[in-house]
């Protein structure tokens, strides 16, 4: 890039316009980046337009969680394998996890407290709008899950290091905030990053509209 082109690039930046495309050498790029740092430090500069903030929020709201979910997966091999056979990475991952951990049990056992009390934690009505409901009693944090009309209850404590899981926005999986680990609604770990025990199930029963769980 000649000095003339560099001046054009500077003028574009000063007019708050995109720098014309094309190759720069590192020296030129760092000069323009230094100019950007200066421009960005103006006290009145660099506030996002409210219209932009709103429209990006709308775009994010429209994004299906299932496609975003690939960011939870690590390992280019899995993504590449998924791309090669044209199925979702999560399916490949299930197969990968099962193949590499053939002895992993289907459940993490049942949490049955010695002095448990049947406690109402949610209702069938609530589960119709929110199929995965998290609850916390004094000592137990868990999920009540309604999957095609079948109600189950499992622990919400990640079996890795004990962080509290959240339901994904589309209620298809349980997400650990600490280490990109997810669990299926059946409590089985979804990702190959860590070899984890499944989430323990909780004893539960339905009484009329109420869902009760045996907890302490």
């Amino acid at each position: 890039m000649s000095d003339k082109q560099l001046h054009k690039a500077v003028d574009a930046m000063l007019a708050d316009k995109r720098i014309p495309g094309g190759s720069l050498d590192d020296d030129e790029a760092t000069m323009l980046q230094a100019a950007a740092r200066l421009r960005g430090s103006r006290p009145d500069a660099a506030q996002p337009r409210p219209d932009f903030v709103d429209s990006l929020a709308r775009r994010l709201r429209r994004r299906p969680v299932s496609t975003s979910r690939r960011y939870f997966l690590r390992g280019a091999g899995i993504a590449a394998a998924a791309a090669a056979v044209g199925v979702g990475a999560d399916r490949i991952l299930d197969a990968t996890v099962l193949a590499s951990h053939p002895t992993q049990g289907a459940t993490g056992g049942m949490l049955s407290p010695d002095s448990g009390v049947w406690t109402k934690v949610t209702t069938l009505t609530a589960l119709r709008t929110t199929p995965v409901v998290r609850f916390a009693t004094g000592s137990v944090t868990g999920f009540v899950i309604s999957n095609r009309g079948v109600v189950t209850a499992i622990s919400a404590v990640c079996t890795h290091q004990g962080c509290i899981l959240s339901a994904a926005a589309d209620s298809t999986e349980l997400v650990c905030p600490c280490h990109d680990q997810t669990f299926g609604l059946d409590g089985r770990p979804n990702s190959g990053d860590y070899y984890l025990q499944p989430l323990p199930a909780l004893q539960h029963r339905v009484d009329g509209d109420d869902v009760l769980v045996l907890v302490v």
């Binding site: 574009a12 930046m13 708050d16 316009k17 995109r18 720098i19 323009l32 980046q33 100019a35 950007a36 740092r37 421009r39 960005g40 430090s41 500069a45 660099a46 506030q47 996002p48 337009r49 932009f52 903030v53 990006l56």
Partner: peptide
């Protein structure tokens, strides 16, 4: 807002920052 300012200071114009 903070992320936008961080980005703006490194790309230098509104369209690219957005």
């Amino acid at each position: 807002g903070a992320v936008y300012r961080f980005v703006y200071s490194r790309v230098g114009n509104r369209a690219d920052a957005e």
